[in-house]
């Protein structure tokens, strides 16, 4: 096993009286791909948002390369640029074209020049088959194309970890594969990735590890093959049965 890249210890989070995360422990190794599965409302999205510090956690610790990033008052910008996140609803900036969407953060946060960034961005667009759409705006792109631009936008910051929050859930079924292909490519490069997903076949194919979440807890976590073939917990079994026609 590689070194631990991201470690969560007893992470808890409530919105008002509603406890969304309840003592999450999780280690993610460098280059590992972990899929979070579970019903809607089980806390997958919130967990990802906490890892990116978009939501402050109430209790517990999050360590990135052994450094506590959950301590209140830390420079969040510095952490967020090392951990990219892609959302279900794409969230491209509608007033900028695809290329500007991608260039904004590296220019402002990393202070790089346009001249330096454009070739890198073009390379990413080319790799994900979007070269000819680079100068289009979000409303001129299909959902699948928008989502791929969102992935490129996150990758342009050269993050060390990528989080994907159900990124195919808002897509037309015929467009899902083009986004999953992008994830496959990232997997091949050895990117450390954490996905919340409902695409079980995809998880089965690529994930190193599966975590099944229910009621804000990781109920069961294990090697992909084990979870899908011999789930130990009753809740995991029920969930998988309800999804898979097997």
């Amino acid at each position: 096993m590689n070194e631990v890249k991201l470690r969560l210890e007893g992470v808890s989070k409530s919105f008002g009286k509603n406890q969304v995360l309840n003592g999450i422990d999780l280690d993610i190794a460098e280059g590992e791909m972990v899929c979070l599965i579970g019903a809607s409302g089980s806390g997958k999205s919130t967990l990802l948002r906490c890892m990116n510090c978009l939501e402050p956690i109430d209790d517990g610790y999050i360590y990135l390369d052994g450094k506590d990033i959950s301590e209140p008052g830390l420079d969040l910008s510095d952490i967020r640029r090392r951990i990219g996140i892609v959302f279900q609803s794409f969230n491209l900036f509608p007033h900028m074209n695809a290329l500007e969407n991608v260039l904004l953060a590296p220019r402002r946060v990393l202070g790089k020049s346009r001249e330096e960034l454009v070739p890198q961005a073009e390379e990413l667009f080319t790799r994900f088959g979007l070269k000819e759409h680079m100068h289009k705006y979000a409303d001129q792109l299909s959902g699948g194309q928008q989502q791929r631009v969102a992935v490129i936008r996150a990758l342009a910051m050269r993050p060390e970890i990528m989080l994907f929050d159900e990124i195919t859930s808002a897509l037309d079924p015929v467009l899902v594969h083009e986004v999953l292909d992008v994830l496959r490519a990232l997997r091949d490069e050895g990117m450390t990735m954490i996905l919340a997903t409902h695409e079980m076949n995809f998880a089965k194919e690529l994930a190193d590890r599966i975590c099944f979440m229910d009621g804000g807890q990781i109920v069961e976590s294990g090697k992909t093959a084990q979870i899908f073939s011999k789930p130990k917990d009753e809740r995991t079994r029920t969930f998988l049965k309800s999804l898979l026609v097997s």
């Binding site: 959302f87 904004l104 953060a105 946060v109 996150a154």
Partner: peptide
């Protein structure tokens, strides 16, 4: 709000 989230997640400052 999702626009803010997306921008913050890239590391942009509140001001930016």
């Amino acid at each position: 709000q999702s626009q803010r989230s997306a921008a913050l997640s890239l590391g942009l400052s509140e001001r930016d």
